[in-house]
């Protein structure tokens, strides 16, 4: 089975949203700042529910924030 990875654009989107802080995003999505930090650094893949809440904050579709990548993608 290929190793998979979920990449995200949260850091960039926060910057574009009037430099929203990690704490502010955490408060608006109902998680701790630590979880936002872990997601941004690719150390934690959020649940679908949290992913949708993040998408709602940025008012963007899910696929504009999160992208799914496997090792096979890199080999192509």
């Amino acid at each position: 089975m290929s190793k998979c990875r979920i990449n995200n654009e949260i850091r960039k989107l926060r910057f574009l949203s009037n430099e929203m802080t990690q704490q502010e995003l955490a408060d608006r999505t109902g998680v701790t700042r630590q979880t936002i930090v872990a997601i941004e650094n690719g150390k934690y893949s959020p649940t679908l529910e949290l992913a949708f809440r993040i998408a709602e904050v940025f008012k963007l579709p899910l696929e504009d924030i999160f992208t799914y990548q496997t090792d096979d993608d890199g080999k192509k």
């Binding site: 109902g30 998680v31 701790t32 630590q34 979880t35 872990a38 959020p46 649940t47």
Partner: peptide, 9 residues
């Protein structure tokens, strides 16, 4: 200290 524990925790 954080009063809540979220999904990752």
């Amino acid at each position: 200290l954080p009063a809540k524990s979220d999904e990752m925790v």
